[in-house]
Design a protein around this nucleic acid. Structure first.
Lengths: 161, 161
DNA sequence: TTTGTTGCAAATCGTTTGCAAGCTA
DNA sequence: TAGCTTGCAAACGATTTGCAACAAA
């Protein structure tokens, strides 16, 4: 990608997103990967999203754009960003994956409404603590964890029935 | 399935498994479903397993048997048993599902070794408590949850490196 | 130029489904 | 017998991959 295009993209993004894209660019260079138009466009879109998304949803975002991006490329970029540690993959029990970007987004767990799919994030230091303990008690060295609570949100908890 | 066959299966199973199969049979009848040879064989096998398994693994168990069972049937039975509340489905981040039977098997969470796949079960009432609280605080009515801790077990935590 | 990247379509892989033949009740 | 089940193969849906054309360094 030539410098003009790259700057064109960078100029219209907010500072926070810009920094994250910078981090991504550096990762690409470090790995001997190339900084392409599609990679920057997808990264920009992802860092601008402040909720969970799917590969399909991301693809959707580019549907009516002048810059269309193929499904294969979307998946390939998602994969790179996960390796780069910029993106986290989630399994919410569906048969497709959810993603969310990590930078400026501290660790948290999820509560998912099984009716409408609404996702709420939360953290409880005490739970984190206890997990750490449980792993240690069982001789494990924690590398990560995923805690998903399933239930029905206010709007969908029919109190009657 | 005729009574003889059914008894033949029942007679060689341990009491606990027998009771669980009984529960399954009752569920089938209640739902107007039929008690078939394959359903009993698969149920018996499942209730005899005391660890997590996959559809593929279960199928494997019948590979060299006189009573072969098709992949489609395996999946159909798994689905029924999940609906019956006798089997729990798990998503351990792999692209296939894990199952474990529930009867005589209280709720618990999992610690999974990312190197060897070893799965350890644990429960911490305090964590359960805190989750309940977190959901309530966010206006959710909990219907279930899944807590998976990923890490490396003693044998695979290379202390160096 | 050299080497990595893209888009396309075909391939995978776990899981599901249509359908004719076979059981259960 | 009537109605559910089974096995088989084909269908699915998300994700991956081979390959020729193309862009970045």
């Amino acid at each position: 990608m030539n410098r003009e295009k790259q700057e064109a993209i960078l100029n219209k993004t907010e500072p926070a997103v810009r920094m994250e894209m910078q981090t991504f660019s550096e990762y690409l260079q470090k790995e001997g990967l190339k900084i392409t138009n599609q990679r920057m466009l997808v990264a920009e879109r992802i860092f601008s999203l402040h909720n969970h998304f799917t590969a399909e949803g991301l693809l959707e975002e580019f549907k009516d754009q002048r810059d269309q991006i193929s499904k294969a490329t979307i998946y390939r970029i998602l994969s790179i960003m996960v390796s780069a540690g910029l993106l986290q993959e989630h399994n919410f029990g569906k048969d497709y994956k959810y993603y969310e970007h990590i930078i400026g987004h501290k660790h948290h767990d999820h509560i998912i409404c099984t009716v409408c799919g609404k996702i709420v994030e939360f953290v409880d230091e005490r739970i984190e603590q206890l997990q750490e303990q449980a792993a240690k008690d069982n001789g494990f060295k924690i590398t990560g964890h995923s805690l998903n609570i399933y239930g029905t949100c206010i709007e969908h908890s029919s109190s009657g029935r």
